[in-house]
Write a protein that binds this DNA or RNA. Structure first.
Lengths: 234, 234
DNA sequence: CCAGAAGTGTACTTGATAGTACACTGTGCG
DNA sequence: CGCACAGTGTACTATCAAGTACACTTCTGG
C-alpha cells in the first residue's frame, strides 16, 4: 500500500531521491504509529515499495532512518508555529492571545503531533538528541514568539511587569490544558472544536484577569512589582 | 489475581506473597527504566532472585505482570495527591494554592512519577486501560480536589464565578509548566527547588491576578459573569 | 518428621527482527 | 545501443526474548 509509482514525470527528482522520499514516508507512518521498538523495517520496506538493501544503503541502520524522520518532522513542525498569530501587535490583547492559542492548539492536537510527542517522550532516554531537537523546534519556538509579544505589550503598558518567558510558557501549558494529555493517552474521542475553544477562552481569561474577586489592592500591586523586579534581577 | 495466601503467618507474609512482592519490585524497576518492550522478563527474574516458572504462575504473562505493576503504582500515586494541601479553607487563597501546587509538583517531578508518565504516554495505545487507570489515579484526583476548593472559595466570595473544573486543570498545567516536560525528556538537570518554587509562585500570581494592567472594568466583569453563566448552562 | 504444595534452575521451542550477501533487473546517459 | 550503476528480491545468519517442560529442592502445616 501507499506504493509510489515508479515512473515519475521528467521534472521530478532523481531515482535515488524518489526512493528516499518513499522510505521516509513509510517510515514516518510506521514509527509514529508504533513507536521505535515496535516498528519493523520489514514493514517499512513493504510499505515503501522499495527493498531492504536500498534502505540500508541510504540510511545505514534503523537508528539512522529514525533520525532522518525526526529531522523532517521537526522542520515541518516549526513552520506553523513561527507563523502562529501573525502581527499580534495590531490586535487587542484578548484577540491576539486567542488567535495565537488557537493556532497553537491546532498544531498540538494534530494526530501527527500527538504521535511525535508520544515518540519523543518514550524515546528521549535512548536518543538524547531527539528531545533537544524537538524541544527546540516546538515548544521553544512557540514560547519565544509569545514571550516577545508579552514583552512588547508590557512595554506598551497593556500588561503588568513580570517574567514574560515564564508567563508565555505558563500560558501555553494552560492552553494545552488536559485536552492534550487526554488525547495523548487516547482517553475518549478527540475533543470537538467547541471544547477546544472553550478551553482556550478560559485560559485567555485567566491569563488576562485572574480569578480574584477584588481587583488587586494598591499594596498587593506594589508587592507584585517588587517580586517581579527581584525575579528580573536574579 | 490478587490471591490471598492460604497460610498467613501472624507477622510475616506467606511465601507466595513474599515472592510476589519481590517480582513486583524488580519488574517495577525494569519497566520504569526501560519501557514495556525493552524490559525483559529474564532481567526481572534475575533481579527478583526468583524463577521464571514462578513468575509465569503468578502473573500469567508479561502483560499480566505489567498490569500488576501499574495497579500498584496507581494506588501509591493517589495517596499523596489526596492529602495534598490539607484543610485549604483554613488559609488565605494564596497560601493554600501555593501549598497545593508545591505538593503537586513534588509528586509530579519525582523520578518514579516521571518514569510512569513516560510509560503511560508510550504504551497507552497498546494498553487502553492503562491510560484510564493512571488518569483516574493522578490528574483527575488532583484536579477534583482543587476544583472543590475553588468552588468553595467562589461561594465564599474570594473568587470570581467561573468553571472551577476548567480552572483547576488550567492551574495544574500551569504549575507543571514546562519544567515537567523538560524533565520528562531529560533536558538539562533536574530543576532546583528554587526554580520550581519560582514557577509555582508565578503560576499562583497569574491565576489570582492575571496580567492585565488595569483591573477589569465593571463592564468587562459583567461580560465575564455572563460568559461564565453561559458556560455553566451548556 | 512427613507429605505435598510452592518455588527453583536449566534447557528447550518458537517466533520475530536487525542486518548481510548475492544474483538479477530496470534505468538513464553517452 | 550498451554499459554502469542503482535498485530489487530472496534467502540467509545471528540474536534475543517470550513462553514451556520437567526434574529437583525447599518450605509449611499438621
Amino acid at each position: 500500500m501507499n506504493r509510489i509509482s515508479k515512473r515519475q514525470r521528467a521534472g521530478a527528482a532523481g531515482r535515488g531521491a524518489r526512493r528516499r522520499a518513499a522510505f521516509l514516508a513509510a517510515a514516518r507512518e510506521a514509527f509514529l504509529a508504533k513507536g521505535y521498538a515496535a516498528a519493523t523495517l520489514d514493514d517499512v520496506v513493504r510499505r515503501s515499495g522499495g527493498s531492504r538493501a536500498t534502505l540500508y544503503k541510504q540510511f545505514g541502520d534503523k537508528a539512522g532512518l529514525f533520525a532522518a524522520i525526526i529531522a523532517e518532522l521537526c522542520a515541518e513542525m516549526t513552520a506553523p508555529l513561527r507563523e502562529a498569530g501573525e502581527r499580534p501587535q495590531a490586535r487587542a490583547p484578548r484577540a491576539a492571545l486567542l488567535a495565537f492559542a488557537t493556532a497553537f492548539m491546532r498544531v498540538m492536537m494534530a494526530p501527527a503531533s500527538l504521535a511525535l510527542y508520544r515518540l519523543v517522550v518514550a524515546e528521549a532516554g535512548r536518543f538524547p538528541e531527539l528531545g533537544r531537537a524537538v524541544y527546540r523546534a516546538g515548544p521553544k519556538v512557540a514560547a519565544a514568539r509569545l514571550a516577545a509579544y508579552l514583552r512588547a505589550g508590557a512595554a506598551a503598558g497593556a500588561f503588568t511587569a513580570g517574567d514574560a518567558d515564564l508567563r508565555a510558557r505558563h500560558f501555553l501549558e494552560m492552553v494545552k490544558g488536559d485536552l492534550h494529555f487526554r488525547a495523548l493517552i487516547g482517553l475518549g474521542p478527540q475533543p470537538s472544536r467547541r471544547e477546544v475553544d472553550r478551553c482556550v477562552r478560559a485560559a485567555v481569561d485567566s491569563l488576562l484577569n485572574g480569578i480574584s474577586a477584588r481587583p488587586p489592592s494598591r499594596a498587593s500591586a506594589r508587592r507584585r512589582r517588587r517580586a517581579a523586579a527581584a525575579r528580573g534581577a536574579s
